[in-house]
Design a protein around this nucleic acid. Structure first.
Lengths: 167, 167
DNA sequence: GAGAGACTCGAACGAACGTTCGATCGTACA
DNA sequence: TGTACGATCGAACGTTCGTTCGAGTCTCTC
C-alpha cells in the first residue's frame, strides 16, 4: 500500500478515502483484467469466421493485453487465492466466462467431438503457454514482437512443433 | 519460518541451528529442484533413442516430479527473483542447464534447422504448458493421471491440437 | 566429574505491513 | 458568514514476520 500511495502521489492514508483496503484493490485489478480480456475478445472476434483465425485472434488479444500490462498477469497468476467470499466469486465468474469463451473456440476447431485430445485440458495447456511468457518475455530485450509471439503460439497449439510454422 | 518450524516439530529458533535463514532455505529448495529434475531426466532418458519418445520421457519426468511435489513448483515459479548474488547464480546455472537439456531434445525433433517455429520459443512454451498445470491440476479431484497428462501434453506439443491424440 | 560441543528453547527485537484516528484545508451552498 | 462535506495528511496502532540472544539440556570425551 505504501508503494501504491507513492506511485499515486498520495499519502498512505489518502488511499483509504477511495478504497476500503488492499483486498478491494486486488479485487478491482483481477475483475477488470478478466472483464476487459473477455470484452476485448468478443470485440476483436467480430467478423472473423475461420476457426483457426478465431483462435489466433484470441491468443493475440490475450498476449497483447498482458504484454502491455504484465503486472496484471502477475497479480492474476499469484493472487487468485487471496480473495474471499463475494469478491472471489465475482472474479471467479469472470475468469470462468473468459476461459469458457476460449474453450469454445478450441472446441470449434474439432467439430467431431470425442476423438483425440481432451479439449478442456488442451485449453488449460493453451493458457499455460500464453500465460507463462511473463516468466521469460522481456518486452525490451526480446526480438520477438507480441503479435509474432501470438502467431507462433497459435501455430504451435494448432499444428504442433513438428508440423507447425512455415517450414 | 514459523510454519516451517511447526511442520518440522522444532521451535522457531531451532531452525536457525541448521539454516542461516529463509534465503538459504529457498536456495536449497530451488537448487535441489532443478538439480534433481536434471538428474532424473538424464537417468530416465537412458536408453531411449526415438526423439519423440525422448521428449515424452522428459515431459513425464517433469510432470511426475512436480505433480508429487507441487509446493516446489510454486516456489520455483514465484520465488526465483528473491535470491541474490551467488545463491541466485547457482540456481540460475542449474535452471539453465535443465532448460538447455530439454531445449536440446526439442531441437533434435527437427534436424533441418532454420525452418518452422523457433525452437527456443517453442521450448519456453512447452515449459509454460507443463508448469502451468499447478494452477488447475488438483491431484485428488482430477480424473487424469500424471502420466496421462504428460502423454497428452507431449502429443499436443508435437502434433498440435488439430492432429494430436488418437483421433 | 569437569569441560566441550551439539542441540533446543522461550523470549524478545526490529522492521515491514495494512489499517485507523484525529485534525486540517478548501470549496460549495445556505 | 457559517457550515457541511470531500479530500488530504501525519502519526500511530496492532499484527506478522524474519531474526537474534541468552540460557538450558544432553551426550561424549578426557
Amino acid at each position: 500500500m505504501r508503494r501504491v500511495a507513492a506511485e499515486a502521489e498520495v499519502s498512505l492514508a489518502g488511499i483509504y478515502h477511495y478504497v476500503s483496503g488492499k483486498e478491494e484493490l486486488l479485487y478491482w485489478i483481477q475483475f477488470h483484467t478478466f472483464d476487459s480480456l473477455l470484452r476485448g475478445l468478443e470485440e476483436s472476434l467480430g467478423n472473423v469466421t475461420d476457426p483457426r483465425r478465431r483462435l489466433e485472434t484470441a491468443v493475440r488479444n490475450h498476449v497483447r493485453h498482458f504484454g502491455e500490462n504484465m503486472h496484471e498477469l502477475k497479480i492474476c497468476a499469484r493472487e487468485l487465492e487471496t480473495l474471499e467470499g463475494a469478491a472471489y466469486d465475482a472474479v471467479h465468474e469472470r475468469r470462468r466466462a473468459y476461459f469458457e469463451a476460449v474453450h469454445q473456440l478450441v472446441r470449434e476447431l474439432k467439430p467431431n467431438r470425442g476423438t483425440g485430445l481432451n479439449s478442456w485440458i488442451a485449453t488449460a495447456n493453451l493458457f499455460g503457454m500464453i500465460n507463462w511468457f511473463y516468466q521469460w518475455y522481456e518486452a525490451g530485450r526480446s526480438q520477438v514482437s507480441l503479435d509474432d509471439l501470438a502467431a507462433q503460439q497459435t501455430a504451435l497449439f494448432l499444428d504442433g512443433f513438428i508440423a507447425g510454422g512455415t517450414g
